[in-house]
Design a protein around this nucleic acid. Structure first.
Lengths: 143, 143
DNA sequence: CTAAGTGCAAAGTATTTGCAATTGG
DNA sequence: CCAATTGCAAATACTTTGCACTTAG
């Protein structure tokens, strides 16, 4: 029964306000990849007084502490997800927007080889594959 | 002396205005990965009356026509580059912002395997590696 | 107690749009 | 000629910030 990191231990050094814990928990327990507005919406249902600024401020903090990952999908704004135990990547459907997570040893190879070749110290990789999911492929046939 | 695609042939169906050709040529011939403001700045030097809206509108068009690639580097706004003959990826220094282009067969493998596994029709991959370049690694030692 | 955090409104940045004037084909 | 495109200004979308009030530690 491995207990997931609690807000208390993850946020050492920072004050554990009600809003902060709420946002942290939503990101931890939520399944998707919410954008700021979606997270704000969810948070408001549990604490109607929370402000959008607080959401932005805490996302920035979580990101700085390495607790969340900021995703640059195909859209204008960002999406966020609680940092996974292992780095993973995203497969995005251009038709319906569905996001599938995947992992692959090819990316490790890539980081190793490219880092070596250019003598970079690699910190991480941001990989998004774009395509059409099975359902959207089928729908496109019809048109 | 292979001539690169001209604005005329690339933009068939669209009107070839002076502004459009100017922007197209800047992206084609320019070496970097300009963001909107940088491109606007360059364009204004050659046509002081060009408007920022026109830059935005044409970037959107070029993107739709597949003539430029929109890069999601680590920043808030986007960067653009003329679409290369072969898909490539970016290695970004978190210290100085330098961008190195690279290609790798590992990404093809990745597309093939992940596409197959999830039955997606893959259109493309957006890959950014982040790290510190040799120079920034050296500078960090000192601190 | 007091520095860190919050809510709110206002400001700042990035991008899009309505519209009258211009222009490529 | 006339629909597409432009410049401009205004609108929208996204994010940050100043400040007075609140609160965790």
């Amino acid at each position: 029964m491995a207990k997931s990191k609690t807000a208390r231990t993850a946020l050492t050094g920072q004050r554990l306000t009600a809003q902060r814990r709420l946002l942290f928990d939503l990101l931890r327990k939520g399944k998707g990849h919410p954008d700021v507005d979606e997270l704000y919406r969810q948070a408001k249902q549990l604490d109607p007084r929370i402000s959008l600024s607080t959401v932005y401020r805490n996302l920035r903090l979580f990101k700085k502490l390495g607790l969340v990952e900021e995703l640059h999908l195909e859209e204008e704004h960002h999406h966020y997800e609680s940092r996974p135990t292992t780095e993973h990547y995203h497969l995005v459907c251009r038709g319906c927007g569905q996001v599938v997570e995947f992992r692959s040893p090819h990316v490790d190879k890539l980081k190793q080889e490219v880092g070596q070749e250019h003598r970079y110290a690699i910190l991480g990789a941001d990989v998004s594959l774009v395509g059409y999911c099975p359902r959207c492929q089928a729908n496109r046939q019809k048109v």
